[in-house]
Design a binder for these strands. Structure first.
Lengths: 247, 247
DNA sequence: CTGGAATAACGGTCAGACCATTAGCCGTAT
DNA sequence: ATACGGCTAATGGTCTGACCGTTATTCCAG
């Protein structure tokens, strides 16, 4: 991180940075968004327009836009009235990026599961404190749907994931919600086959989900934590010692 | 995820995808990496070479490489023997991406602080359980450096952030470490000025850091949680009701 | 009023060119 | 023999100008 200038004595000679021009543009636009001078839904000038404003060629502008798009900051539409639009519903993209990187980095499913349990258990005090009647009704509805799916033998990990995200919504903190949501993308990657290994997990899973909602409704934090701990530990057992990449 | 064809009856008529050519290339290379046919450190063919193989122009190849680079999958070096290298040490980039998205979504510092406290408190059981003697020595060293910086009136939020990351390292779970690291980027953005508001925070902060290490060394989880809770609550008080963007 | 064709704005792609950076090679001078 | 300095080729970075496909709008014909 801090590679300070510890050279021949003087810390003159700043590190000469030959940043790409396109990268400078990326930073500039990022800054505009960060400062709020560009908000969600705003439309950037057209590529040809940006060329003139920045005094660079269209290729350079386009590369900058590609980076911004890959980072999830903008969304590009073609055709008349098209162009680059600032987009903030970047949850899915964040999850996708997380999934990519987790798949490729040396993180094992066990590591991820543990991190996930830290979060999902840690939020329970807030969930218990803040869950509204509507929240709880919504969770119960999800459980019902899950049970129906089980009866039809169509229970998927997505249903379970949706429930867990639903629980996080009860914390009424979008940062927490995003966090939980992001972790379920990578999980699905390695769990899709875990389900095959343990088809009975769906039934026990929904039972535990129901118990969790009961605890939340009773405002019983300790019970909620106990249920969630059991629930996640079982998942942890399934993915333990699985290799980092599971195609 | 699964946008199956539920159209007019027949599932002929595949969704006509006018995917960008560059996006197809991105997907193809991503797949190669995921399948392990390209591993960390491998060098992709040169841009001009890829043009011929894919049968597209250099602009298209370059846009694909920009996306892959922004996603953290490759690293590009210029000059002779340069080119695109598959890179896996993507922690920093992942953290950067997380930080970007957190900063740019409509999350307030209060939201982020709360999510952060969930994580930093939630990991303490693991930290207390797994911290080695070296870990604790390292933490104490950080505290000393912090105190020296305080004496020189040069205490920055980076020093505090480094300590918190150091604590997360003790959990011996790279996923958790990445998570904590990611959250300190956005925090710094809004806290850099909070330090000016409360210059005494540095002294109290390091005192609490020391108390935390004591608790960890004594394997006293409850005490550690109590110290961390107090520590974070004070920060939370500072950033409460701050606006989303703080330039 | 309605349906469809023409239009203009815009992103996507291509081709070829030139510049800047860099690793390795090679020759010269000590 | 060695060390320094320039040369060269490989490679990414940028530019120019053009053409194509997509799309919202406009406007005319029925």
């Amino acid at each position: 991180m801090s590679d300070a200038a510890a050279d021949t004595g003087a810390d003159l000679f700043k590190r000469v940075s030959v940043d790409r021009v396109s990268q400078v543009i990326v930073d500039q636009i990022k800054l505009l968004v960060r400062e709020g001078k560009l908000s969600n839904g705003d439309r950037l000038p057209s590529e040809r327009d940006l060329c003139q404003r920045f005094g660079v060629s269209r290729v350079t502008v386009r590369e900058a836009l590609r980076v911004l798009e890959a980072s999830g900051l903008i969304e590009i539409r073609v055709g008349a009235r098209g162009g680059a639009f600032v987009s903030s519903p970047t949850r899915e993209r964040l999850g996708q990026g997380l999934a990519d990187l987790i798949t490729l980095s040396s993180l094992t499913p066990a590591h991820i599961t543990e991190a996930r349990s830290v979060i999902e258990i840690g939020i329970l005090p807030f969930v218990v404190e803040r869950a509204t009647g509507d929240d709880i009704a919504s969770l119960r509805r999800m459980i019902e749907e899950g049970q129906e799916a089980l009866d039809r033998n169509a229970y998927t990990m997505n249903i379970s994931a949706a429930f867990h995200v639903g629980v996080s919504v009860c914390a009424h903190n979008p940062a927490i919600e995003t966090l939980v949501q992001s972790f379920h993308g990578p999980m699905l990657l390695s769990l899709r086959q875990a389900q095959l290994v343990a088809p009975a997990m769906g039934r026990r899973g929904t039972d535990e989900h129901a118990a969790l909602v009961d605890a939340i409704e009773a405002r019983d934090t300790e019970a909620a934590i106990a249920v969630m701990t059991t629930h996640l530990d079982r998942t942890a057992g399934l993915v333990r010692d699985m290799p980092p990449a599971a195609p």
